[in-house]
Amino acid sequence: MTEQEYLAALSQILSDILGDDSIALTMDTVREDVGGWDSFSYINFIVAVEAEFGVKFRIADVESFPNVGAIVKAITAAPRR
């Protein structure tokens, strides 16, 4: 998958969670940029991403992803289950 495809998939997951179809994530998007993307829906997003891509993030990484790009990189780097 390309970076763009990952971003499209992540945007779709987040749109489903937040009930907002206008979300378009970029590599530089941070949580504050997206209306309603609070810490509570963040964890739901992370788990949905894990399920979608069959990866498992470390809890420490989950806490410290600086932006969406870091999540994309972690997905590509993570071992597949």
Binding site: D16, I17, S39, F40, I43, N44, I46, V47, A48, K56
Partner: peptide
């Protein structure tokens, strides 16, 4: 959130997923 809620939710969700039950899917 970081030290209680997230670890708890993460582990619960993974367990549910492993058990084949539906997980948190936003609107659905």
């Amino acid at each position: 959130t970081a030290y209680i809620y997230n670890p708890m939710t993460l582990s619960l969700t993974r367990k549910r997923m492993a058990a084949g039950k539906p997980i948190f899917g936003g609107r659905n």
